[in-house]
């Protein structure tokens, strides 16, 4: 057990290291110098003034030293939770991210958890009820196959623009200040609903169809046939089938995280929802490298943590991994 977790943790650390290095390298290997880009924003006519500013800014951004030094400084910053300054917001990157993170988590966590739980339940029900199956299957395929942007636009068009049930964009009414009061909370919930629904529906379709197929498969396996031959109740056979079908779904969840995070970026952009996805969009259009770096680093950490939680959950529910880890079995 301990060896297994040790191996896992080493894997996570190596992954984190590699991903973070790539995150650092991409803006540095891209054409264009962040300092020049930054200075390009201002109209500086005098050459001496330009050179002086260039020097100051280079020092402020830490790009006046050799590349290896910049790399070490970057890690130093990561370890001290300091990702530099955002050009776009002219504020520390961590501040900018901290403002966006609650919105993204409020979208992603309920969307992932609810779509997974409900998708599994309804998929399992569809596996044994023809009528429900005839409804769930086509709808599930439709949502699963829908690109995030397409579904977000469709929902926005029908439910916000045409029916006006929900606001079409932003995280809350601009007129209401952010704070712990009912006016703001209600406004935030109304703005939250459509982007949440977009992410939820796409994932839900995938889980429901996956579960339906897995349960149908499990009900045909040898252990299910054996139980039925010995007169076990339907309930018992279904319970076993469900439990065993959840295992591949859970590994699927780890794989799907990246896709959902990516889809979430698109969704936030469509709804101009002020989370990390929207921030990425702004950072790219502003060529705000430090901000982009910081956001990606944050996403890397988030995905790794979520994967780690899923790993642990898997170990807890699948005796095969649990026991193969102890190395005590044949």
């Amino acid at each position: 057990m301990r060896r297994y977790f040790f191996k896992k943790i080493v894997t996570y650390i190596v992954t984190f290291f590699v991903a973070t290095t790539i995150d650092w390298a991409i803006p540095h290997l891209m054409p264009g110098n962040p300092v020049e880009i930054y200075l390009g924003r201002f109209n500086i006519s005098s050459n001496t003034q330009y050179l002086a500013l260039q020097k100051t800014i280079s020092e402020a951004f830490g790009v006046n030293v050799p590349l290896w030094r910049q790399y070490l400084d970057f890690w130093n910053g990561v370890l001290h939770w300091n990702f530099g300054v955002s050009f776009y917001a002219t504020a520390p990157v961590t501040h900018v991210i901290a403002q966006a993170v609650p919105y993204t988590l409020a979208l992603l966590i309920p969307a992932i958890v609810l779509s997974y739980v409900l998708g599994n339940r309804i998929g399992a029900m569809a596996a044994r009820r023809k009528v429900l199956d005839n409804v769930v299957l086509p709808i599930g395929y439709l949502f699963q196959a829908a690109p995030f942007a397409w579904l977000a636009l469709a929902l926005s068009y029908f439910l916000a623009v045409r029916l006006r049930w929900f606001p079409p964009s932003l995280g809350s009414d601009p007129g209401i200040g952010v704070g712990w009061n009912w006016a703001f909370i209600w406004s935030a919930i109304r703005h939250w609903f459509l982007p949440f629904l977009s992410v939820f529906l796409v994932s839900f379709g995938g889980w429901a169809i996956g579960m339906r197929n897995l349960v149908i498969y499990e009900l045909e396996t040898d252990y299910a046939r054996y139980l039925r031959s010995l007169g076990a109740s339907q309930r018992l056979v279904r319970r076993y089938a469900y439990r065993n079908a959840v295992l591949p779904q859970l590994s699927g969840l780890a794989l799907a995280l990246g896709v959902v995070v990516g889809g979430n970026i698109v969704t936030e952009v469509v709804f101009q929802y002020p989370g990390l996805g929207h921030l990425i969009f702004l950072a790219i259009s502003d060529e705000d490298f430090f901000l982009l770096q910081g956001i990606f680093l944050f996403i890397i950490i988030g995905v790794l943590v979520a994967n780690f939680i899923i790993d642990i959950a898997y170990v807890l529910i699948d005796p095969r991994t649990r026991l193969s880890m102890t190395g005590a079995t044949a």
């Binding site: 396996t221 040898d222 252990y223 054996y226 031959s229 010995l230 007169g231 076993y240 065993n244 529910i317």
Partner: peptide
């Protein structure tokens, strides 16, 4: 038939080696 299974008729199936729930 349900009540007769296991009590009065029983089977060791052809796939006996995979007949037990793995989890």
């Amino acid at each position: 038939m349900e009540q007769h299974r296991l009590r009065s008729v029983s089977i060791i199936p052809q796939y006996a080696m995979s007949a037990l729930n793995p989890t």
